[in-house]
Simulated scan of single mutants.
Amino acid sequence: MFFLFILIFSTLISISSNSWFGCWIGLEINLLSFIPLISNSSNLLSSEASLKYFLTQSIASINFIFSILLKLFMMKNFEINNFISIMINSSLLMKMGSAPFHFWFPNISEGLSWFNNFLLMTWQKITPMILLSYYFNKNFIMIIMIINAIIGAIGGLNQTSLRKLMTFSSINNLGWMLASIMISENLWMFYLIMYSFLISIMCFLFQLLNMFFINQLFISNMNYMIKMFLLINFLSLGGLPPFIGFFPKWILINFLLTNNFFITTFIFIMMSLIMLFFYIRIIYSSFMFNYINLKWMKIYLKNKFMILINILSFLSISGMMLSTLIFL
């Protein structure tokens, strides 16, 4: 609990700082507070993940502080400014696990619990994203957000691990977030809140069911209500109307089309369809496959939290309809 408080505090240090050096200090405190949260001496995968996370984040931090110092000494040289902005952007993108600097993200997520994965996919992106909005190279970020959308969609196609699947989903959504932060910080905040809401339901449900791989969804003889929750939340996360996950994407598509980003919008929509394809494939398997040898073991979650998930799933399906009525 103490380290979680430090994690939140470090984000506030970074986003309220009036110098790049203060932002860097905030990022370092964030790194040092997140490692004790994810490391577990009794779990080798968790220990390995914390070490990998430390090394990759340290490399990104070194790159970030080097770029800041270079900017400080080369202030009058306008020709090198473009190169420095790309370096600062790259180090921040590496910190948030953005493609093509995502090499560490799926491997680390595999060794973490669902709660730590939720933090890694949501809270750990806030600081680098806000710092990126202060000083971004527009052309570079345009390319990166398209790469994010493509890698996030294609990378999830051959995954059997639910944690890796959620990671590639996060990379795809990061492309949408980068597009939203280029337009407006309010739009980005709205998208992040919506995405955090949906991913929290998924992580919470998988934590309750103790599920880490796709085959567990159809080997485990779950009752159809739980499968229905999974269906609703997966489709909402994929951005299918009339679910609430489509709402922030709809607003963002409107903004992109208004600013004549037709090719970018087309790529984003196509990649969202691929995302929906592998979400539907998982749900179809869990509904249709039946294992006779496990008939004796039926999973019913008699848990007070299931009422909460039920309410959240209902919000997910009804929210888009309500928002459409507001716009009409």
Rank of each mutant, 00 (worst) to 15 (best):
F5L: 14
S10W: 06
S16T: 13
S16Q: 10
N18F: 13
W20S: 09
W24M: 10
G26E: 10
L31N: 07
L32Q: 06
S50H: 10
K52D: 07
S61R: 05
S61T: 09
N63D: 09
L69P: 00
L70G: 03
K71Q: 13
L72N: 13
L72G: 00
N77L: 07
F83K: 10
I84T: 09
I84S: 05
M87K: 07
I88T: 11
N89D: 04
S91H: 06
P100E: 13
N107T: 08
I108C: 00
I108N: 01
W123M: 10
W123T: 08
M129V: 05
L131H: 01
L132M: 08
Y135W: 11
F140M: 06
I141D: 00
I143D: 02
I144C: 08
I147D: 05
A149T: 04
I151H: 01
I151G: 02
A153R: 02
A153L: 01
N158E: 05
S161W: 02
M166L: 13
T167S: 11
L174A: 00
L174K: 06
G175N: 09
I183C: 10
E185Q: 05
N186W: 05
M189H: 00
F190I: 11
M194K: 00
F204A: 12
Q207K: 15
L209Y: 12
Q216E: 15
I219W: 07
M225S: 14
M225R: 14
L230M: 15
L235T: 03
P248N: 04
I251R: 04
N254T: 07
N254M: 12
F255V: 06
F255Q: 13
L256Y: 04
L256A: 07
S272A: 14
L273W: 01
M275D: 07
S285D: 12
Y291W: 10
Y300N: 15
Y300R: 14
F305P: 00
L308F: 13
I309W: 03
N310I: 11
S316C: 14
M320D: 08
L322N: 07
L328K: 02
